[in-house]
Amino acid sequence: MWLPVLGLITGVLIGSMFTFTIPIVYAKYLSVSVLAALDSLLGSVKALLEDSFDSAILISGFFANMLLAAGLAFMGDRLGLDLYMAAVIALGIRLFSNLGAIRRDLMEMHHTRKALKQAKAGEVNDETQQ
């Protein structure tokens, strides 16, 4: 469960340590791609919680979203439109909605566990009573 978080932290640490940079011209595309990647990660967290996780979907979504976001930004630059804003807004909204879903799932899980515990406790009590 905590492995992906560890992976993220490791990535951040390694990235901080080695300070890779790409040409300044592509900075915007990279930023938008990172946003897409984060969205994909949050989406997969949600999928994990909802038991609908599929690594194929994650991988394809991860790269497809990144490419689309970067592609939009690139196209926007070519067309003179701030098209990357579309990606930013869409991904931002999705991030919030995913976070909301995750929150709700976690709450649900918490309640279910509580209920299960109580049920278990009840069963135990029944057994002792018996």
């Binding site: 990535g11 990235g15 890779f20 990279l30």
Partner: peptide
């Protein structure tokens, strides 16, 4: 393998994030 994929992608995301930060 699901966790592995997720972890790998998380790692990549972290890397990219820092890359973006540095580039920015």
């Amino acid at each position: 393998n699901k966790y592995l994929t997720f972890t790998l992608l998380s790692f990549m995301t972290g890397l990219l994030l820092m890359m973006a930060v540095h580039t920015q």
